[in-house]
Amino acid sequence: MTGAEQSSAWRDLRPRVLSALVMVVVAGGCIGFGGIAYTLMVLLAMGGMAAEAAGLFRLRVQSLRGGLYVLWAVCAGLSAAAGHWGYFILFCISACVFGAPLCAVMSVIIMAGTALLWLRQDSVWPVLFVVAVVVASDTSAYMAGRMIGGPKLAPGISPGKTRSGALGGLVGAVLMGGAVALLSGLGGAGSALIWGGLLGLSAQTGDLVESAMKRALGVKDSGTLLPGHGGLLDRFDGLVIAAPVAAAISLAVPGAPFWSAGLHDLVHALVAGMPG
């Protein structure tokens, strides 16, 4: 690599690293403190992602309809924060007034925000588990893809992603799941490996879906809020899928960390929830 190429690479990397550090400090602090700080962070993220989605579909946030779209996400988050957990379904369904594409994105944003608020109710560990696994999946996939390379994963959707990167991301997610479970002291390290892998796959799915959406819309990034990362949807595309999956699992083991859930817990929860 020439000196000019190295200088260019550093110029691209520097804002990415700096913005990542800011995100880690701010998000880490809010997750740790919980309460109003955490709720406010989730609400701002929901509103910000809704604003980016509106822009992607040529809906001006400054317009009445665009402003209502952003407010829709924030109100759904406020409803969950107030303990009205079941209302998220109504907000998702009624978002159809904005049209099918915007409704679909809004539903993902609402489910992700509600899930993140749900997971932080009693302990910091469920949120840390999900976030750490998603970050580990993303980082491991990037490193494995760069070092190993090989066949592309989905060249028609995201030309930069490789199969080796996907496998590396899965391994990183599995290991991180077990590590967080051990650090928490709450047990379930064995099953945490499995759920870490599932959340890692969920995160990779979210990444691919967002890439497909941007490709269909002919845009590179969802926004410019995060230097070096693009927008909120770009940065949290994996988290918005992984968080609802984790929240759904937690319903099977109330009062226990979601990663301790076994197959028998899931079956029992499904049977108990069936009518009759």
Score class of each variant (00 low, 15 high):
residue 59 L to T: 02
residue 247 A to I: 03
residue 141 A to N: 07
residue 19 S to H: 12
residue 53 A to E: 04
residue 236 F to T: 02
residue 19 S to D: 03
residue 136 A to Y: 12
residue 170 L to S: 12
residue 17 V to W: 13
residue 57 F to Q: 03
residue 63 S to G: 11
residue 45 A to Q: 03
residue 8 S to N: 14
residue 202 S to P: 01
residue 16 R to T: 08
residue 9 A to K: 14
residue 51 A to F: 05
residue 267 V to W: 14
residue 209 V to S: 09
residue 35 G to T: 12
residue 181 A to H: 03
residue 100 A to N: 07
residue 150 G to C: 14
residue 49 M to A: 12
residue 53 A to K: 08
residue 191 S to Y: 15
residue 88 F to E: 09
residue 172 G to W: 01
residue 232 L to I: 06
residue 181 A to I: 00
residue 142 Y to W: 13
residue 163 R to L: 11
residue 260 S to M: 10
residue 42 V to G: 06
residue 247 A to R: 05
residue 159 P to E: 00
residue 264 H to V: 07
residue 159 P to C: 00
residue 85 W to C: 00
residue 213 M to D: 05
residue 200 G to W: 10
residue 102 L to Q: 10
residue 177 G to D: 02
residue 5 E to R: 15
residue 237 D to N: 12
residue 8 S to Y: 12
residue 237 D to Q: 00
residue 130 V to E: 05
residue 12 D to E: 13
residue 172 G to A: 04
residue 137 S to T: 03
residue 100 A to R: 13
residue 225 L to T: 05
residue 71 L to S: 12
residue 96 C to T: 14
residue 31 I to Y: 08
residue 236 F to Q: 10
residue 214 K to E: 02
residue 66 G to T: 08
residue 43 L to Y: 10
residue 58 R to D: 13
residue 90 L to Y: 03
residue 56 L to N: 10
residue 225 L to N: 09
residue 106 M to Y: 11
residue 25 V to C: 10
residue 117 L to W: 09
residue 179 A to K: 00
residue 174 V to I: 14
residue 203 A to L: 01
residue 209 V to W: 11
residue 264 H to C: 04
residue 75 C to M: 15
residue 116 L to N: 10
residue 87 Y to I: 00
residue 152 K to M: 05
residue 25 V to G: 08
residue 41 M to A: 15
residue 82 A to H: 12
residue 276 G to H: 13
residue 201 L to W: 09
residue 131 V to F: 15
residue 37 A to G: 11
residue 188 G to V: 08
residue 122 D to S: 13
residue 255 G to T: 07
residue 213 M to S: 03
residue 120 R to G: 06
residue 35 G to P: 10
residue 108 V to Q: 04
residue 254 P to Q: 00
residue 45 A to W: 01
residue 34 G to R: 11
residue 102 L to G: 05
residue 218 G to Y: 11
residue 149 G to K: 09
residue 254 P to V: 00
residue 14 R to T: 00
residue 147 M to L: 15
residue 107 S to M: 15
residue 100 A to G: 01
residue 136 A to Q: 08
residue 115 A to I: 04
residue 3 G to R: 12
residue 122 D to L: 07
residue 272 A to C: 02
residue 129 F to A: 04
residue 131 V to A: 13
residue 18 L to G: 01
residue 220 K to G: 13
residue 40 L to Q: 14
residue 223 G to K: 12
